[in-house]
């Protein structure tokens, strides 16, 4: 098993793993976007900045307060999610009666402001963040070297996506969410505080982005642009999977990560564009996305 299709096995598996890692981020980020879009009907263009904030909050917790990775995993989503709650209450909620385009413009603007502020304070060169001691090192699997931290990222994000899916599909709160996505006015007329549900949903989607940011901190350097680069691909993932489909965004996220990794092996020049090519094909043949309802 040294070569597969003429490709050295370590290279193939290495790229597959890299694809899964990227897929894990695509999945978590597009999941948050899908949850927000489903209920708020707003494409949250602040999502990349909120992912970046998650990584920065992890860095600040460590360097300013001495709180390590495990604390960051808990606190950064809470802190950034709370900032999302404030943004929704004070700004986004004023736009629900207007065309969705305004929500898009607003969240895009907020994202630019947040990035600008971070660039101003931290520069754009990037700050180091090391994984915790428990997750350093790696295993020699024979056919490839598996860094523990990367394995952790894939498993953890799978668990987060599964837990989110279960919460939406199997709990009472999830039933409110699904019902309000269909007909918010009627759910409110049953006595559910829908404005609060919307606020919490936005906060939850933002917290997911921040959680992905914490996971990303030890892999990518922590810098103000880290979200911008990723989020463009994530929007393509969301379009391919189908706006608002929960399971679709998770499967598409991981799937496209793997496709991208394989492309890097077999046709490296195309790896940066393959997702956008797929997006174009899907838009032409299935405009609602692979998992979307037309």
């Amino acid at each position: 098993m040294d070569e597969i299709f003429g490709i050295p096995a370590p290279l193939l598996f290495g790229q597959l793993l890299l694809g899964l890692i990227n897929g894990a981020f695509y999945a978590m980020l597009s999941l948050g976007l899908a949850v927000i879009f489903g209920l708020l009907n707003i494409i949250n263009f602040t999502h990349g900045a909120q992912f970046m904030m998650g990584a920065f909050v992890a860095w600040m917790l460590l360097n300013w307060l001495g709180l390590g990775y495990w604390w960051a995993l808990l606190l950064a989503p809470l802190i950034v999610g709370l900032s999302g709650v404030i943004i929704e209450r004070t700004m986004i909620s004023r736009l629900y009666k207007l065309d969705h385009l305004y929500g898009l413009l607003l969240t895009f603007g907020i994202g630019l402001i947040i990035e600008g502020v971070f660039r101003n304070y931290f520069g754009s060169s990037g700050l180091p963040y090391r994984p915790p001691a428990e997750l350093q090192g790696g295993w020699d699997l024979g056919f490839m070297f598996m860094p523990v931290y990367r394995f952790w990222v894939v498993v953890f994000s799978l668990v987060v996506c599964l837990a989110t899916w279960l919460m939406i599909e199997k709990t009472r709160l999830g039933a409110y969410l699904r019902a309000a996505t269909e007909n918010a006015a009627l759910v409110q007329a049953f006595g559910v505080n829908v404005p609060r549900l919307i606020t919490l949903t936005y906060g939850f989607g933002v917290a997911l982005a921040a959680l992905a940011g914490v996971l990303a901190a030890p892999i990518y350097s922590v810098n103000p642009q880290m979200g911008t680069n990723l989020i463009i691909i994530v929007f393509a993932v969301v379009v391919i999977g189908g706006m608002g489909s929960i399971l679709g965004s998770v499967l598409t996220g991981f799937g496209l990560g793997v496709v991208e990794g394989l492309t890097r092996v077999f046709w490296p020049e195309a790896s940066a564009t393959v997702i956008f090519v797929i997006m174009a094909i899907v838009l032409v043949t299935r405009p609602a996305g692979l998992f979307g309802r037309a």
Binding site: A185, Q188, A189, F190, G191, V192, N193, V194
Partner: peptide, 8 residues
């Protein structure tokens, strides 16, 4: 009143 308060 808001509709959720009316329901309640």
């Amino acid at each position: 009143a808001r509709s959720d308060a009316i329901a309640r």
